[in-house]
């Protein structure tokens, strides 16, 4: 079993390689454009009478501009997002950095965070809560793309729309997906601001790391 820690081929690179950084920021821009233009579209026929998004945080002067931005940014998100997912899966980055996720660890991390004992000196390893959030938001965005296509083409994809409970149900799912992504963004940005070196790392690349660095906790 000691072999499992043997370094076979060491690939040294920045914590966040240049391509990944570019994809991250393109993703961020596209997502913000989608959210703000989505709010513009939402405002024309609200799902909840008590909820209108202030014009100041929407994208587009008129409704058609909101639609134009939304149906432009969706291509950026889909193409860039596909490259991002392919990169993460192909290079093993997701497996190395985001897996495994143990419920016990998640609970322990939440407890540490609530008692302000959470260590964040080492930004090269994600804690269990980060892993849950990153995997979670990626899944939500994939689902958001799916419900987005169904909303755009509810008749061409009428079978899938019926499966989800109809056009208005899909609208609601798309809204909930947005809410989840906005929730993630708030936490993600707040935590990044609390540990500013994480932002620096996503801009300049961060420390040099080894792909083959053994994980700290071997499976029992």
């Amino acid at each position: 079993m000691s072999d499992s820690f043997t370094v076979k081929s060491t690939r040294r690179h920045r914590l966040h390689p240049a391509g990944l950084r570019a994809m991250h920021w393109i993703n961020a821009l596209a997502m913000i454009a989608l959210i703000m233009s989505g709010w513009k579209i939402y405002n024309d026929e609200v799902l909840f009478g008590w909820l209108h998004f202030p014009e100041a945080v929407t994208l587009g002067v008129w409704a058609q501009h909101g639609l134009q931005w939304h149906f432009f940014a969706m291509w950026i998100l889909m193409v860039n997002g596909a490259f991002y997912l392919a990169y993460g899966l192909w290079t093993g980055r997701f497996r190395r950095k985001l897996l495994p996720i143990w419920p016990r660890e998640v609970i322990a991390t939440v407890r540490e965070a609530l008692t302000f004992k959470l260590a964040h000196d080492d930004i090269t390893h994600y804690n269990a809560v980060q892993k849950v959030l990153y995997v979670g938001v990626m899944l939500v965005i994939v689902l958001q793309v799916v419900t987005g296509w169904l909303l755009w083409k509810p008749i061409q994809f009428s079978e899938a729309v019926a499966l989800l409970g109809g056009f208005q149900a899909v609208r609601l799912f798309h809204f909930i997906g947005m809410a989840a992504i906005v929730g993630f963004l708030v936490v993600h940005v707040a935590l990044a601001l609390l540990v500013p070196k994480t932002i620096g790392a996503m801009v300049t690349g961060g420390p040099i790391v080894d792909d083959a660095t053994p994980e700290a906790v071997p499976a029992e």
Binding site: Q68, W69, F71, F72, W75, K153, I155, Q156, S158
Partner: peptide
């Protein structure tokens, strides 16, 4: 943005199912 919208016209034409009936 209107150039992108024109591209989206083409995409919609391509995925249009001429014999698929709406519910």
């Amino acid at each position: 943005l209107r150039t992108i919208s024109a591209f989206n016209d083409k995409v919609q034409e391509a995925i249009f199912r001429p014999n698929h009936l709406a519910p």
